[in-house]
Amino acid sequence: MPYYNISDYLDSVKKILNVVQRTNASVIYSNQEHLGPYLSAVKLLSDTTTVVHIRGQTPPEQAFALQLILQDRIIFNSQFMCDTTLSEGKIDWLSRSTSHVVYNAVELPDVSNISPVPEYDNEGITIGMFGRCVPWKNFKFVFDAITDSSLYSEIGALMLVGINSGLGDDKYEAEIKDIASRRDPQDKFKLIGFQDDIWPYYMSCDIVVVPSIKEPFGRVPIEAGALGKAVLASNSGGFRETIQDDETGLLFELSVEDSFLDKLGELVDDEALRNKLGEQLKRDVNERFSAERYYDDMAEILEVNDD
C-alpha cells in the first residue's frame, strides 16, 4: 500500500481506520515493508494495538526509529536484528517488554518424498550455497577461497542455486560467472538458476555453506538442517543464533579465508562429523524453528486464543 502524495496517504489511512472500526479490530499487525507511516497514523488516531514485525534488514534512519517508538509491540526475527535496529536507531532504551524475538519457521518437508538431483548425487563431496546473488551474501568469497586451495581437488562439486533469479546484482553475478569460466579447470562449479523446488538440491549436498556478511536471520541453515545436512556458516548476524558452533554446525570467522578453509576441511574429511552435526541440527530445527512453535509464539504476543 505505497503512497505517492499526501492525498493518497490520507485516503489510505482513512481506509485502514474504516476497517478497524467496521471489524472492531483490537490489533493491527504489519510487516516491515508495509509499515511506512500508516500504522503510526492509525496508532495516533485510534485505541487499536499496533504490532510491527521486522523481518529483514532495516534502515537506521531516525524517521524509521520514530515510527517504531509509536508502536505497542515490535517483533524481530532474531536477537541480532533487535539489538541492531534499536541501537542504530538510537532507541535501545525502548522497553524490552515492547520488543519480542520470534524466529522464522520452516515448513518441514516430507523427507521420504525428496530425492537428490541425479547429476549431483555422486561419490565426491557436494557443497551447496543457496540464495540470490548480492554482495552481502558473500558467495564470491567461497569461490575464490576454494579455487586457490587444495580443497578444490577434494570436492566433487560446488553449486550455487539462485543465480539469474532477476533479484540479484548483475555485476556481482558476472564476477562469479567469470570465476567459474576462467578458474574452474575441472568444471566443478555449478551455477544453477532459481528453482521453485529447492529441496532436491539441498538433498544433493553433503555440506551447505552460508557465508553472508550480515544476515538478519537466514533461512538456509534451517532448511539445510531440516534435511540433516551439515552447515558451515559465517560467525555473523543471525547465524550466531541459528547455529550453535561445534554442536549443530560450524562457524568460521567472517571473510577470513584460513578460518573458512580450516572448518570446511574438517567437514570434507570427516563424514562422521558431518552426520553428527546434521542430525543435531535437524533435532534443533524441529524444536526451535517449527511452524507450530512459530504460531504459538505469535499468538501469545498478539494475544490470540482459540476460542
Rank of each mutant, 00 (worst) to 15 (best):
F289G: 07
L86I: 10
M203E: 15
R73H: 12
K177P: 05
I192F: 07
Y201T: 04
K276E: 13
N5L: 05
L45M: 12
I179H: 10
E287V: 05
T147W: 00
I74M: 10
D170M: 10
K171A: 15
T49W: 01
S95I: 02
V52E: 13
E257W: 00
N31D: 14
G228Y: 04
Y172F: 13
Q57F: 07
G131R: 03
T242G: 03
E61C: 11
G36P: 01
N24R: 14
L302Y: 05
K15E: 15
S150H: 09
I74C: 07
D8W: 13
Q21A: 12
D184P: 07
K140Q: 15
L70A: 14
P60N: 02
L94R: 05
L17P: 06
G124L: 07
I54G: 03
G156Y: 01
E61Q: 07
S30Y: 02
Y29A: 09
Y38R: 03
G166A: 04
V231T: 09
A174F: 03
N77F: 02
D83Q: 14
E173P: 06
G249Y: 03
H34N: 15
L227Y: 04
R288G: 02
G128E: 05
K15W: 03
V52N: 13
V51C: 00
K214E: 14
E292V: 00
N305Y: 03
Y120P: 05
A157N: 15
V134S: 06
Y4L: 14
Y4C: 12
K282F: 04
V102F: 05
S99E: 08
S204M: 05
D197M: 02
N122L: 07
D270N: 14
D170S: 14
S26L: 10
S181C: 09
D262M: 01
V209C: 01
D8V: 13
K190S: 07
L66A: 10
E271A: 09
I301W: 06
V220Y: 07
I114G: 06
D110R: 07
D246G: 08
V304C: 10
P116S: 00
L70R: 10
L35M: 15
V20K: 09
L254S: 09
G228D: 11
Y120F: 15
A180M: 13
C133W: 01
E61H: 08
F139N: 09
Y202R: 06
V285W: 10
G218E: 04
D270I: 00
K282P: 02
I301D: 11
K229D: 11
Y120D: 05
P221Y: 08
D92L: 10
A157D: 13
V102S: 04
N305I: 01
S259H: 00
S236I: 02
R293I: 00
M129V: 01
I54S: 08
Y120C: 03
E257L: 01
K90M: 11
D269G: 01
K263P: 01
S12C: 12
Y29H: 14
N18D: 15
V142K: 02
A145V: 00
Y294S: 04
L68R: 10
S150D: 14
Y4I: 15
Q21L: 15
P185S: 00
T84S: 14
D11K: 14
G162T: 06
R55S: 11
V51P: 01
A226Q: 11
S30I: 10
D258K: 12
S97R: 15
V20C: 12
Y38Q: 03
K190T: 02
L68K: 08
V256F: 09
W136Y: 13
Q21D: 15
K263Q: 14
V209T: 04
I69L: 13
G218I: 02
R22D: 15
H34C: 09
S112W: 00
